[in-house]
Write a protein that binds this DNA or RNA. Sequence first.
DNA 1: TACCATACCTTGCGCTGCGAGGTATTATCG
DNA 2: CGATAATACCTCGCAGCGCAAGGTATGGTA
Lengths: 118, 118
Amino acid sequence: MPARETNPSFMNGVPELLILSLLRQEEMYGYEIVQAISSRSGAVITAGEGVVYPVLHALERDGALRSRRKTVNGRSRIYYSVTPGGALRLTQLSQTWTQLAAAIQTMLQGGRHGEAFR
Amino acid sequence: MPARETNPSFMNGVPELLILSLLRQEEMYGYEIVQAISSRSGAVITAGEGVVYPVLHALERDGALRSRRKTVNGRSRIYYSVTPGGALRLTQLSQTWTQLAAAIQTMLQGGRHGEAFR
DNA sequence: TACCATACCTTGCGCTGCGAGGTATTATCG
DNA sequence: CGATAATACCTCGCAGCGCAAGGTATGGTA
């Protein structure tokens, strides 16, 4: 059967975007990412472990992330970093998001997208 | 059974927001809204009828919208307008969205939310 | 007579995000 | 030394949202 194709909702993929964005700046491990998202967003955004870990695994499976074990203070952690492919993906997601946010913003202000105020 | 409570994902509710926003500016009917979202967003966003109509019904059911039939050019249309309650809801959704967008934006730029650049 | 555009509607499902729970190890504290 | 909390990892199952796909009816147009 022809498997009805569903384009992903234009809203999805934000956790993925945020995680890639964090990891591009700095190597991090899952538990740390969970807290970083909360703290760096001023608690506006929270992505629990049930969100973060699956995204990490999926991104690594897709070759966007690379991981390595490291033991710090007797704590075993899995640090993730962005591959070149992941960096490209981040660029694309980031652009899409910025476009979307801009479009919504102008609509909220009652304007047409691409139209300057006068 | 205590019905596990699931807070809505922080991403959802954008169609609702856009529709309320459009209707606050101008009375509109469903079919028109579908096209308005596409055109005013510069085709960045598309919300098909399968999105718009259910949202309209839900909003009306909740008292956020009010509708009246009108026949224009032999075409029977259902025009929707925002009630005071709907206006309040729009304000809240709008604020939440703006906050969220700002938080994401600063995170993408590698900053902390609420922290000014220096 | 077709055919397209307008205008409304609902059903069913894919997919995402998430809560809830689970394991194991290390600190902390009485 | 036992108990509790914090760290750090993980997965299952579902709720809900957005959507494609389909359906109806009418008016304009070729």
